[in-house]
Design a protein around this nucleic acid. Structure first.
Length: 628
DNA sequence: ATAGGGTTAG
C-alpha cells in the first residue's frame, strides 16, 4: 500500500515536470478512489504545473481537493503555491479571497499579492498593499522592493519611488542586483535619467539586466547616443548582451538612422541565434525601415515564420513613412488575411500615413472604419487625423471631424494641442490658435515652436519674438527648431537686424550648431529684405558647404527682386548641385519671364528638353506659357 | 515558497 502511494506520487511529479497536467490530475483522482492522501509536496508540484499551464480550472479543482482532504492552509510551500496559482491564472479578486484566509501572512504571501497587483496592472493596489503590509508589522524584503518600484515606474510616481529608495539605502538592499536594476528602471521611467545613471554608477556588480535597464532608460529618454555607447561599453567589460539587450538597443539605432550599427547588431543577433525571437525581428524591421533600408526590412519580414501585430505594424509604418500608402494599405489587408486584427497602433499608423501624404479622404475614411472595428480613438489618433482636416477645411466632413475632436476633450494632451494649434495656424485663424495655445494645460518645445511659426508666417514677427522671450522666461529652453521659427518670423516681418542678432545669440549663448535650415532662414531673411549681395556674402562665408536649400532660397529672392545677374549665377550653382532637379530651371525661367526675356525662357526650356528632364513631375511649364 | 530589463503609431 505505502509503496503504491510512493510510486504514484513519483509518477505525478514526473508528469508535472513534463507539463502533462491533465494526466497527473487523473492519477490524483485514482489515489482518491483508494483513499490515499497526498502530502504538501505533491500539491506544490501540481499547483506549479497549473501556474505554468495558466489553468485556473485545474487549479480550482486542486484547491477544492485540498479543502476536502482537510489540508491546513498556511503560509507554507503549498499555500504559497496556491496563492501564486490564483495570482498568475486568475484575477486579483481570486487571489485576494485566498489571501484573506491566511491567518498571519508572513512576507512571502504579501509579496505574491503585491506581484499579483503588478501583473494585473493594478499598480495603485500594489502600493496600497505595500503600506498595509507595513502597518501589520511585516517589513519589506529584497523581493518586495523590485515589485513596488515597478509599480512606481509604471505610475510615474517619482516621489514614492524616491521614498522607497531611501528605505532601500537604510536597509542595505542597494547592493542587491535586482533592487539596483529596478531602481534604474524606476528613475528612467519617471523621466530622470540622471538619477538612473547615478544608481547605475553606484552598483557594485553590474549584470546584463543592470546594463540593459540603463540602455533602455537612455532610449526612453531620447538619449540614444548614450544608449549605443553603453551597449559598446558592456561588451568591453565582458558582459554579454542577451536577447532583451538587443531589443532595447535597436530602437536607438533606428532613432539615429544608423544603418551600419544596426546591421552590426543584426549580425550579432544571428550569431547568437536571437533572430527567431519575434521581438528581435520586429525591432530589426523597424530599425531598417527607419534607416530607409526598406529592402532589408522586407527581407527580414518575409523570412519570419511567426509574425505578430508589431511586426506588421513596423513594416506598414515603413511603407507609410516613405509615402507608399498603397503599399501600406496592401499590407494592412494582408495582415488581416492572416487573421491578425489591427490594433490601435496599426490604425494610427495608417491614418497618419494617409494624412501626411496627401490622402485626407482616405485618412478620414479609416478613422470611421476604426470606430466600426471597435478600436477606440486615442489622442494619437486625433492628432494624426488633424492634418487631414486641415486639407479638407472647406469640406463639411472635415468640420465634422473637428467637432468630434473637441467633443472628445482630447485637446488637453500636448500632441493634440500642438496639432490643433498647427491646424488653426494653417487655416489662417491665428487668434483661435492663440486661444488654444493659452488654454493648453501643458506645453512642450513643439507647442511653442508651432505657435511661433504660426505668427511668423502670418507676418506677426513681434508676437513671435515676444513668445520666444516668454518661452525662456517660463523655463523652456529654445531648441534648434525654435530658432528656425524665430528667424522665419523675422524674415516674414522684415526684421533683419533682430534676426541677425538671434542667429548670433543662437551660436554664442545656446551653443546650437547651425544646420542648413538655419542658414537658409538667414538667406531668406536677407533675401526678402532685398539685401541680395549681403545674402550672397553670407553664403560665401558659411563654414560648411552651402546646400541646395540655401541657394534655392536666394534664387527665389532673386526672382522677387528681379535681380537677373545674380539669379543666373545662383541657378548655375544649383544646376551643378542637382542637375536632375527641374524646379530650378522653372524658377530661372520665371525670372526671365517676369522680365519679359522670352528668348532666355525658350533657351532654358530647350536646355531642359535636351537633357530629357521635362517629364519630371511636380512642376509645370504650362503656367509659364500661359503668361506669355 | 516570492524578485529586476523587451519591439510599433504622434
Amino acid at each position: 500500500m505505502n509503496s503504491t502511494a510512493k510510486f504514484h506520487e513519483h509518477n505525478i511529479q514526473n508528469l508535472c515536470r513534463e507539463n502533462r497536467l491533465e494526466k497527473a490530475m487523473v492519477i490524483l483522482h485514482d489515489l482518491d478512489k483508494r483513499a490515499i492522501l497526498v502530502d504538501s509536496d505533491i500539491y506544490s508540484c501540481l499547483l506549479q504545473a497549473c501556474t505554468k499551464d495558466k489553468s485556473l480550472r485545474q487549479g480550482k479543482k486542486l484547491h477544492a481537493h485540498m479543502l476536502l482532504t482537510g489540508f491546513q492552509l498556511n503560509a507554507d510551500s503549498a499555500g504559497t503555491k496556491l496563492l501564486s496559482m490564483y495570482s498568475n491564472c486568475g484575477g486579483f479578486e481570486d487571489a485576494r479571497q485566498l489571501f484573506d484566509k491566511i491567518l498571519k501572512p508572513n512576507i512571502i504571501p504579501w509579496n505574491v499579492m503585491i506581484r499579483c497587483c503588478v501583473i494585473h496592472r493594478f499598480c495603485n493596489g500594489a502600493l496600497t498593499l505595500f503600506y498595509e503590509m507595513q502597518r501589520t508589522g511585516v517589513s519589506p524584503d529584497r523581493f518586495t522592493i523590485p515589485l513596488v518600484l515597478k509599480a512606481c515606474a509604471s505610475l510615474g510616481f517619482l516621489r514614492q519611488g524616491k521614498d522607497i529608495h531611501g528605505f532601500v539605502a537604510k536597509c542595505g538592499f542597494e547592493s542587491d542586483a535586482f533592487v539596483g536594476s529596478a531602481l534604474i528602471d524606476m528613475y528612467a521611467k519617471c523621466g530622470v535619467v540622471e538619477y538612473a545613471r547615478q544608481m547605475f554608477d553606484k552598483l557594485y556588480q553590474r549584470d546584463v539586466v543592470s546594463w540593459t535597464s540603463m540602455i533602455r532608460g537612455y532610449v526612453q529618454n531620447g538619449q540614444v547616443n548614450e544608449a549605443v555607447d553603453l551597449f559598446r561599453g558592456m561588451q568591453l567589460v565582458g558582459v554579454k548582451p542577451n536577447l532583451i539587450t538587443i531589443v532595447s538597443v535597436l530602437p536607438a539605432c533606428a532613432h539615429l538612422a544608423d544603418l551600419k550599427k544596426g546591421k552590426e547588431i543584426h549580425e550579432y543577433a544571428l550569431k547568437r541565434g536571437f533572430h527567431l525571437d519575434v521581438f528581435v525581428v520586429s525591432s530589426l524591421i523597424d530599425m531598417y525601415a527607419k534607416c530607409g533600408a526598406m529592402n532589408f526590412a522586407l527581407r527580414v519580414f518575409d523570412k519570419m515564420s511567426q509574425r505578430n501585430v508589431v511586426s506588421w505594424n513596423s513594416i506598414i509604418a515603413g511603407f507609410a513613412h516613405n509615402g507608399n500608402c498603397d503599399g501600406a494599405f496592401e499590407l494592412f489587408h494582408r495582415m488581416q488575411g492572416t487573421g491578425i486584427k489591427p490594433n490601435l497602433v496599426t490604425w494610427n499608423t495608417m491614418i497618419a500615413g494617409y494624412a501626411q501624404n496627401g490622402f485626407p479622404n482616405e485618412a478620414i475614411e479609416l478613422l470611421y472604419q476604426m470606430q466600426l472595428a471597435g478600436v477606440e480613438w486615442d489622442a494619437v489618433t486625433l492628432a494624426s487625423v488633424l492634418p487631414a482636416c486641415v486639407a479638407l477645411a472647406a469640406l463639411q466632413q472635415g468640420k465634422e471631424i473637428h467637432c468630434q475632436i473637441l467633443r472628445k476633450g482630447f485637446y488637453s494632451s500636448v500632441f493634440v494641442g500642438s496639432a490643433l494649434l498647427d491646424m488653426y495656424c494653417k487655416c489662417g485663424n491665428i487668434e483661435i490658435a492663440r486661444r488654444v495655445f493659452d488654454n493648453m494645460l501643458e506645453r512642450d518645445a513643439v507647442s511653442w515652436n508651432v505657435m511661433m511659426v504660426g505668427y511668423g508666417v502670418h507676418g506677426h514677427g513681434e508676437e513671435a519674438i515676444a513668445l520666444f522671450e516668454q518661452m525662456q522666461q517660463e523655463g523652456m529652453k529654445p531648441d534648434q527648431i525654435s530658432f528656425i521659427a524665430v528667424l522665419c518670423a523675422c524674415s516674414h516681418s522684415g526684421l533683419v537686424v533682430q534676426g541677425m542678432q538671434f542667429f548670433n545669440q543662437m551660436i554664442r549663448d545656446f551653443h546650437v550648431v547651425p544646420r542648413m535650415e538655419h542658414y537658409a532662414s538667414m538667406v531668406d531673411l536677407l533675401g526678402r529684405a532685398g539685401c541680395l549681395e549681403k545674402a550672397e556674402g553670407f553664403i560665401k562665408n558659411m563654414p560648411t558647404k552651402p546646400g541646395v536649400e540655401v541657394w534655392g532660397v536666394l534664387l527665389n529672392a532673386c526672382r522677387v527682386h528681379q535681380n537677373i545677374d545674380l539669379g543666373e549665377r545662383v541657378a548655375q550653382y544649383l544646376f551643378e548641385l542637382e542637375p536632375e532637379n527641374t524646379a530650378y530651371y522653372v524658377l530661372l525661367s520665371n525670372i526671365y519671364a517676369e522680365a519679359g526675356r522670352w528668348d532666355d525662357v525658350a533657351k532654358v526650356r530647350a536646355k531642359v528638353k535636351s537633357r530629357g528632364l521635362n517629364k519630371s513631375p511636380g512642376c509645370s511649364w504650362i503656367e509659364v506659357n500661359n503668361k506669355a
